[in-house]
Amino acid sequence: MSSPILKLVAQRVALGILLLLAVSVLIFAGTQILPGDVAQAILGQSATPESLANLREQLGLNQPAYLRYFHWLGGVLTGDLGTAMSSGQDIATSIKGRLWNTLFLAFWAAIVAVPLAIILGLIAVRYRNGWVDKLISGLALASTSFPEFFIGYVLVYFFAVKWQIFPGISTVYDGMPFGERMQAIALPAAALTLVVLAHMMRMTRAAILNVMQSAYVETAELKGLSAFNVIRKHAFPNAIAPIINVVMLNLAYLIVGVVVVEVIFVYPGMGQYLVDHVTKRDVPVVQAVGLIFAAVYISLNIIADIAAIVANPRLRHPK
C-alpha cells in the first residue's frame, strides 16, 4: 500500500545523495577555478620560489585535479576533513564545537520563529485585507529589504548599549551554564528570527490562503461546520504539507543568515569560522565548511520534498 510512497521517498533521497556528490565536485572545482596557480595567489607576487614549492607540495598541487578530488572526497567520507593551512589544526576537531554552537543558535531561533510565523500567517489570513494583514505584509516587505547586519546592530545598539539587557558580544565556552548561554545567544537568536520571520510568514499566509479558497472548504462551510472546525478538519490536513515546505525552505535560508549574524555577535560558530578562513584564503577549511553548509541546505530541501510526498493523499492511497 505504501510502496509507491517508499519508492518516491527512496528516489528523492537517492537524488539528494547524487546532488550532494555533484555539489562536492562543484565546491572543489570552485576552489580551483583561478587562472594560474592557487599557491601564487595565496602567497602573492613577492613569494620566494621555495615557499611556493612548499605550498604546492602541501596543497598536493603536483597531482592532477581529479586525483586530489577523490583524495579529498575519500577523506570527507571517513570523517577526515584535512588540516587547516593557516593554523595546522585538524579541521574536524575545530569544527565539532563550532557546529554544535551554530546548531544551538539556529535551533533556538527556529523554535521562536516557526510558531510565531505560522501564528502571524494565520492571523493575516483570518483578517485578510484588514489593517492587521496590511501591517503584517508591510513589515514583511520592509524586513526582506533589511540587511542582516542592520537588524543585528540595531538590536545591539538598543538592547546591549542603551538598555544593557543582553550582551552585545556572544561569548560562549564549554561547560557554560544553560541560563548564561541562553542569555548570551538572546540577541543573535532574535536577529536570526527577525531575518527569517517575515519571509516565512508571507509564505505561510499564501499557503493557507490557497487551501482556504478551495471548493472543499466551501463544502464544509455549507455543511454548517463552525469556522474553527472548518479549519481543523478540512483546511489543516491539506495545509500541513505546504506549511512544512515553507518551514524547511526558511530553515535553509536561516543557515545563510547564520553566517552574518555570527560575525556581528562574534559568536564562535561555523559561519564565523568560514568567513575567517575565506579572508585567510585557507582553502581546505573553506571546502570543508562550504560542503557542510551545502549538505545541511540540501537535506532540509529533501525533508521538505518528502513531507510533501508523504502528506499527499493521492500517493498515500493510490488508485
Binding site: 472543499y216 455549507l222 455543511k223 454548517g224 490536513p237
Partner: peptide, 25 residues
C-alpha cells in the same frame, strides 16, 4: 442560525464534485 440550517435543512451539490470533496478524507 446559518450554521444550524446548513447541512440540515438545506444542502448543496456543487458543479465540480472533484474539487468539492476534501482530498484528505
Amino acid at each position: 442560525g446559518f450554521r444550524k440550517l446548513r447541512g440540515r435543512e438545506v444542502c448543496y451539490v456543487a458543479q465540480s464534485a472533484a474539487a468539492a470533496f476534501n482530498p484528505a478524507h
